[in-house]
C-alpha cells in the first residue's frame, strides 16, 4: 500500500483542501490586501495607498474609543466568566443526588442564538415592564429602575452580563471535565498529610486545570473581542457611542460609509492584537506545563 495509499488519500482530500484553502485563507488574505487600498463602495476606482489607512487610524478618536471599550468589555467579561465558571464547575463536581440533571442542563444558554439572547435581556430590562424593573419596584427600590440599555452608565454592564450569561456554563463544563480527570488518590494522599480543602484546591485542583483554563480564556478573549452581534443588536454601539466596540465600528465604516479599505485596516489591527495575545498565552502555558 505505502505510497499509493498516501497518494489516494491526498486525492481524497484535494476537494476539501481546495475548499478549505480558498474559502478560509482567501478572505483573510483579501482582507489584508484591502487594508492597503482605498476601496470604497462609493467609488469604482481603487488605488494602493500603502499604510495610509493605518496612519489615519492613529488620529481617529473613535477608533481609540472603540479599542478601549473592546478591551474593557473583553477583560471584564472573561474575568467574570472564569470566576463564575470555576464556581459552577466546583458545584457541578459535587456528588449529590440529581447532579447529572444540572450537568446536562447547564450548556443551554450557550446553544441559543445570540440574537435570541439579546431579545431575552432586552425584554428583562425593558424600561416600563421589564422583569428587572418590576422586581426592583416590588422590593421597594423603585428609584433604581431605569432604561438599562439606554443608560450611558449601564449599557456596557448589560452587554457584559449577556456575555457572562451565555458563556459561564461552557467554562464550567470544560473545567469540570478537567477536574474529573484528576486522580482521586492525589486528594486522598493530601488529606492524609493533613491538607485542608482550600489547600487541596490550591495545590492539586488549580494546577491540574491550568491548561484547560488557559485554552478557555484564549478562546473567549477571541470570541468576546470579535463579537459583533451582542453589541450591535442590543445598543448598536450607543447611547452616544458608550458601547461602541471595534466590530461595530468596522461594520459602520463598511456598510454606512462604504469605506471598505479603511474598515479592513481596523479588522487587521484587531486580528494582529489577537494573534499577539494568543501566541503569548500559548507560550506561557507551554512553558508552565514543561516546568
Amino acid at each position: 500500500m505505502g505510497l499509493s495509499a498516501t497518494r489516494s488519500r491526498i486525492l481524497l482530500v484535494v476537494p476539501s483542501l481546495i475548499f478549505v484553502g480558498v474559502l478560509i485563507l482567501y478572505p483573510i488574505l483579501d482582507g489584508f490586501r484591502l487594508s492597503l487600498t482605498d476601496t470604497s463602495l462609493m467609488m469604482p476606482s481603487v488605488s494602493f495607498v500603502g499604510l495610509r489607512n493605518f496612519i489615519s487610524l492613529l488620529h481617529d478618536d473613535i477608533f481609540w474609543l472603540s479599542l478601549g471599550h473592546s478591551s474593557l468589555l473583553t477583560a471584564a467579561a472573561v474575568i467574570l466568566q472564569y470566576l463564575l465558571g470555576l464556581g459552577l464547575a466546583i458545584a457541578l463536581n459535587q456528588r449529590v443526588p440529581g447532579i447529572g440533571f444540572f450537568r446536562s442542563l447547564a450548556m443551554v444558554t450557550w446553544v441559543i442564538p445570540i440574537a435570541a439572547t439579546v431579545v431575552l435581556f432586552k425584554w428583562m430590562a425593558t424600561p416600563d415592564y421589564g422583569f428587572f424593573n418590576i422586581l426592583l419596584t416590588k422590593l421597594g427600590l423603585a428609584s433604581y429602575t431605569r432604561y438599562w440599555f439606554g443608560s450611558i452608565t449601564w449599557a456596557m454592564p448589560m452587554i457584559i452580563l449577556m456575555h457572562v450569561w451565555r458563556n459561564v456554563p461552557f467554562y464550567a463544563i470544560a473545567l469540570l471535565a478537567a477536574m474529573k480527570s484528576i486522580p482521586k488518590e492525589l486528594y486522598e494522599a493530601a488529606e492524609v498529610d493533613g491538607a485542608g480543602s482550600l489547600q487541596r484546591f490550591w495545590f492539586i485542583t488549580l494546577p491540574a486545570i491550568r491548561y484547560t483554563s488557559v485554552i478557555m480564556i484564549v478562546l473567549h478573549v477571541i470570541f468576546t473581542f470579535n463579537n459583533f452581534d451582542f453589541v450591535y443588536l442590543s445598543t448598536g454601539g450607543g447611547p452616544v457611542r458608550a458601547t461602541e466596540v471595534l466590530p461595530t465600528y468596522v461594520y459602520q465604516q463598511s456598510w454606512m460609509y462604504y469605506a471598505l479599505g479603511y474598515s479592513a485596516s481596523i479588522g487587521v489591527i484587531m486580528m494582529f492584537l489577537l494573534i499577539i495575545f494568543t501566541i503569548a498565552s500559548l507560550y506561557y502555558i507551554e512553558g508552565r506545563e514543561r516546568s
Binding site: 482567501y26 478572505p27 483573510i28 483579501d30 482582507g31 484591502l34 478562546l219 477571541i222 473581542f225 470579535n226 459583533f228 471595534l246 466590530p247 468596522v250 461594520y251 463598511s254 471598505l260 474598515s263 479592513a264 479588522g267 487587521v268 484587531m270 486580528m271 489577537l274 494573534i275 494568543t278
Partner: peptide, 11 residues
C-alpha cells in the same frame, strides 16, 4: 479562529 468576522465579511 482569530478572524474578526467583520473583517472577512467584506471579501
Amino acid at each position: 479562529q482569530m478572524y474578526p468576522y467583520v473583517l472577512v465579511m467584506i471579501p
